[in-house]
Design a protein around this nucleic acid. Sequence first.
DNA 1: GTGCCAGCTCAAGTCGACTTGAGGTCAAGC
DNA 2: GCTTGACCTCAAGTCGACTTGAGCTGGCAC
Lengths: 142, 142
Amino acid sequence: MSELDIGEVMKRSGLPASALRFYEQKGLIASIGRRGQRRQFDAAVVERLALIAMGRAAGFSLDEIALMFAADGSPRLDRDMLAAKAAELDERIRELTVMRDAIAHAADCPAPTHMECPTFRRLLQAAASGAIRPARPRRPGV
Amino acid sequence: MSELDIGEVMKRSGLPASALRFYEQKGLIASIGRRGQRRQFDAAVVERLALIAMGRAAGFSLDEIALMFAADGSPRLDRDMLAAKAAELDERIRELTVMRDAIAHAADCPAPTHMECPTFRRLLQAAASGAIRPARPRRPGV
DNA sequence: GTGCCAGCTCAAGTCGACTTGAGGTCAAGC
DNA sequence: GCTTGACCTCAAGTCGACTTGAGCTGGCAC
């Protein structure tokens, strides 16, 4: 049947066993039992892991992702939350685009030094004023 | 003259004093001396901090940023490196755009559950296959 | 002369997402 | 009977970028 050893889940998901155990511990996935001491997973766990990977790619933390599953394990994707995340991604994309353009500009800017380039200086202003934030957002304690 | 107390640099850069001391320790900025026990910074440090902020926004680590300053403290932005970073950002923007579109779609998808939506399932595939990576890239030890 | 404020040092803590290591179990194969 | 391999547990470590806390100093105002 579709009872998978952790090794098989590893293969199918590409995640190391340690990560799978960690996810289980966090309640992100569940094994359907044990054979001896070994966890057995339902084949459906692979899809769930894909869902988790997607959440991560979208910038959700594991804790946030955990909240996206109902008690019965079915995904519970609140449409408002999705819309909010889409907007957030949109914003981030805008910022990155500015950065990309500016960096590309700097890469072949004719000004002798970057500091003399008006475009570069404008960008600097933006970054300094916090209009553009680090990839990994600054939050207390991190 | 333009000798600034750390408190003044805080105000002008928006960074907490602890971060400024940390940056100094890392060699990202330097004080021009002490008045009593207090660091004095040249006003130019503010511009340098802006440069650092920009680097962070572009996704560089502090260590990488440190390499971008010549021994004399002037920025040494290798144009090849910039071009590479621009390309990298481009790639990331592409990925995020896919995510954003997919999430926006999911937010008002007519399918009864997300798992039944073909668009959603395609996205899931992408995420699972690693075509789309977490915002904070997975690297060993992190 | 004392109280306060802004600054200082140094060590340790924080956060998320895992990884690593030591030491143990168990079924299969030689 | 013994090794091998795949798995297990639990505690501790890792990484980057800072923050926090305890305990100090130096200058100014009253």
